[in-house]
């Protein structure tokens, strides 16, 4: 089936099997490997991307469902060579170790800050409840999101 998806502002058109998962489309067809796969059960959030602005687990969306949609992945966050405040925040506050959950974590945090630009620590923890991290114990991630909230729009 022919589909078209606008990924990070760029239009992609491909003929795909209906069963192809969006995450495999992004990684294997569009060659955007920043979005990762961590589980088979829609629980780890490593594959989180923005689909028409909403954070979704791209392992639980068929590529055909995203036909005509706009997708933002981790590769689409930095603008003109400048890191997104969340990317900067994760760097400043050591919000990552192995980095595997990080793209999904950042995309979820993106959603959070879009809906709630100044979240409390509790709200940040709630905002990333769909994302598992085995390295950090989450505390530095919370600080990273706080950093981004403080430095956004400046």
């Amino acid at each position: 089936m022919k589909i078209g998806i606008k990924i990070n502002g760029k239009w992609h058109e491909n003929d795909v099997e209906p069963r192809l998962l969006l995450v495999h489309y992004l990684r294997d067809v569009a060659s955007l490997t920043g979005t990762h796969i961590g589980c088979e059960s829609s629980l780890c959030g490593a594959c989180t991307v923005l689909l028409n602005g909403d954070a979704v687990k791209s392992c639980t969306v068929l590529a055909v469902q995203a036909d005509g949609a706009e997708v933002t992945t981790i590769e689409g966050l930095a603008r003109d060579g400048n890191l997104h405040p969340l990317q900067q925040g994760f760097w400043e506050e050591h919000g990552l170790q192995c980095g595997f959950c990080t793209p999904g974590m950042i995309m979820s945090a993106c959603q959070l800050l879009a809906r709630n630009p100044h979240p409390s620590r509790g709200e940040i923890r709630e905002g990333i409840e769909g994302n598992l991290c085995r390295c950090t114990g989450y505390q530095h991630i919370v600080k990273a999101v706080e950093w981004a909230a403080e430095h956004s729009g400046k």
Partner: peptide
């Protein structure tokens, strides 16, 4: 000191095994 590893990781530009074709 901020990590040298991070710029590639926070931008989705690092290569884990499954990213290699």
């Amino acid at each position: 000191i901020k990590r040298k590893e991070d710029p590639r990781l926070i931008q989705g530009r690092a290569h884990y095994v499954d990213d290699i074709k």
